[in-house]
């Protein structure tokens, strides 16, 4: 296999990993930007999405099952997110540390519930046949490069979600209210914006997107009670790196972390790569504490 082909293959992998990070981190970034809350149960929204994909495919087998699973997972995770916001997050809104602990507890409860319902080993979602192809190159400098369809699908889904959320935030009335609340909550409220409702919508949107990401994860490997955990740590890193709440920052940071992971794994094994990633993030934050995009008031811009 040609050097260039290999490198391009890794970069492609990096982008598809980045896609997952974007979907996992988007909700965290949105709700942190708006409400300054960190939802430790966010990973379990991925898990829920994965199990909902599994269940949907039991009901709707066949090639289009996965396309049905996506809205089901989105709505399911958004509803659970809304319940979590109403029952836990909102009640603890002035106490960030308590929120952290409470949502961590919720995370454990959800994992145990999944274990009781589906078993500890995990369930398998079979990718539909139309995602089983690969695009292979056999001539020229790209000879030996293979791009699996599933990975292209992930990229496409992430791009669509990101585009959709960006449109929602930047072009709709709801998005305008979100940005207004983000910049000056009391004044937005005094102008008639129901900031409580905005919080709820944004939180549910974020968990819904995580649910969608869970469907994608299910295409890549088994859905286990802890499947969300392996993505949530990089997602937190992405949010910190991105500048705590900015869409553009989150995207750039996802790509940085995705590429970093994919490229460093050429040289070292996975666990060393994790350590190096953490070191990279710490170093980056030392140099640029505000993250890729400086926020607070600029959060959710663009």
């Amino acid at each position: 296999m040609h050097e260039t082909a290999f490198l391009i293959g890794q970069i492609f992998n990096g982008f598809s990993v980045a896609s997952l990070f974007i979907m996992a981190a988007l909700g965290l970034a949105l709700s942190f930007g708006l409400m300054r809350v960190i939802n430790m149960a966010h990973g379990e929204m991925l898990m829920l999405g994965g199990y909902l994909a599994y269940l949907t495919l039991l009901v709707v087998p066949g090639p289009l099952g996965i396309l049905v699973a996506m809205p089901v997972a989105f709505i399911g995770a958004a509803l659970l997110g809304a319940v979590l916001e109403l029952t836990v997050i909102h009640r603890l809104s002035a106490r960030p540390l308590d929120t952290l602990l409470a949502t961590w507890g919720v995370s454990l409860i959800l994992q145990q519930a999944a274990r009781n319902l589906f078993g500890a080993i995990g369930v398998q979602v079979v990718a539909p046949s139309w995602l089983n192809h690969t695009i292979s190159f056999s001539t020229g400098i790209l000879s030996g490069l293979t791009l699996p369809d599933t990975r292209l699908f992930i990229l496409a889904v992430a791009a669509l979600i990101l585009g959709g959320v960006a449109l929602l935030i930047n072009k709709t009335r709801l998005g305008l209210y979100v940005r207004a609340v983000n910049q000056d909550r009391p004044i937005a409220a005094a102008l008639g914006v129901n900031a409580r409702l905005i919080d709820l919508c944004v939180f549910a949107l974020g968990t819904g997107v995580a649910g969608l990401a869970g469907v994608i994860l299910a295409l890549l490997g088994p859905v286990t009670p802890t499947v969300g955990q392996s993505y949530i740590v990089p997602a937190f890193l992405v949010v910190i790196l991105g500048g705590l709440g900015s869409l553009v920052g989150t995207t750039i940071a996802s790509i940085m972390v995705g590429l970093f992971t994919a490229l460093i794994e050429i040289y070292v094994d996975v666990s060393v790569a994790q350590v190096l990633l953490l070191a990279f993030v710490i170093l980056f934050i030392q140099i640029r504490p505000q993250g890729v995009i400086a926020v607070r008031s600029r959060a959710l811009e663009g």
Partner: peptide
């Protein structure tokens, strides 16, 4: 309400600021 110190939304355009006012 027109607050002391104006409190316009700094990162929103003039039109967007006015549009937020429609929320009432």
């Amino acid at each position: 309400f027109v607050p002391q110190g104006r409190h316009v939304f700094p990162h929103l355009s003039v039109m967007e600021n006015l549009t937020v006012g429609l929320a009432a």
